[in-house]
Simulated scan of single mutants.
Amino acid sequence: MESTSHTLAEEPEIDTSALRLRGWGLSGKQGEVFSDIDLDVPRGAIAIFRGAAGTGKTSLLLSIAGRMHVSAGEGTVGDLDIRKQARAVREHVAVGHVEGLTDLEKDFTVAQHIAERLIMLQPWYKPWVSKSSLREVIDVIRKTFLSATEVIDRLPEGIFTTSDAEQADFLIDPTGETFVSELSELQKFFLEFGLAGLSRPPLVVIDNIDYLRERTDRARAWAGLLIYQELRKTRDPDDLLTIIVSCEDASEVDAALEALESEVSPTSVSEISLAPRPQPSPPQPPQPQHTQHPQH
Rank of each mutant, 00 (worst) to 15 (best):
T216K: 15
G158P: 01
V70Q: 11
M68L: 15
E177M: 12
K57P: 00
G56M: 05
V137R: 09
Q112R: 12
E157F: 10
E136R: 14
S273G: 13
P294S: 13
S35V: 10
A219G: 06
D36Y: 02
A9T: 14
L274A: 03
K233I: 12
T76A: 07
D81C: 07
H6A: 15
S181L: 04
A9H: 14
S3K: 14
E105S: 12
L203R: 01
R90K: 06
V205T: 01
K106L: 09
L198S: 07
F108Q: 02
R87Q: 13
T109C: 04
Q289V: 15
A72D: 07
I206C: 02
F170T: 11
S35M: 11
H6R: 14
D249M: 07
A111G: 12
S262F: 08
R220M: 15
Q30G: 11
H113E: 04
E252I: 03
P283I: 08
V93L: 04
S3G: 09
D153K: 14
P201T: 01
A168K: 15
F170I: 08
I114K: 01
P201G: 00
P123W: 11
S273F: 09
P288Q: 06
I138H: 03
E150Y: 10
D236T: 10
H97C: 05
H296E: 13
P282K: 06
F189E: 03
S251D: 10
P156K: 00
S262Y: 06
T102S: 02
L260D: 02
L61V: 05
Q30W: 12
A52W: 02
K84R: 14
A47S: 03
Y228K: 05
D207M: 03
S246A: 10
S163G: 10
I114P: 04
D79T: 12
G31A: 12
G25T: 02
T76K: 04
E99T: 15
I172M: 02
I227S: 00
I14Q: 13
T234P: 13
E11F: 08
R90G: 04
A165G: 14
K131M: 12
E271V: 11
V205C: 00
L260W: 02
W222D: 02
H296V: 13
I141D: 01
A250T: 09
I14S: 14
L226A: 02
E261I: 09
Q85K: 07
E157H: 15
A115W: 00
S268F: 09
E105I: 12
E11G: 14
E150P: 09
V93P: 04
S3F: 14
R200K: 13
Q187P: 02
L62K: 10
V205E: 02
D239F: 03
P266G: 06
K131L: 12
A18W: 01
S265Q: 08
T55N: 06
I159V: 12
L198E: 08
V98I: 15
V151E: 00
A111L: 05
D210K: 00
G51Y: 01
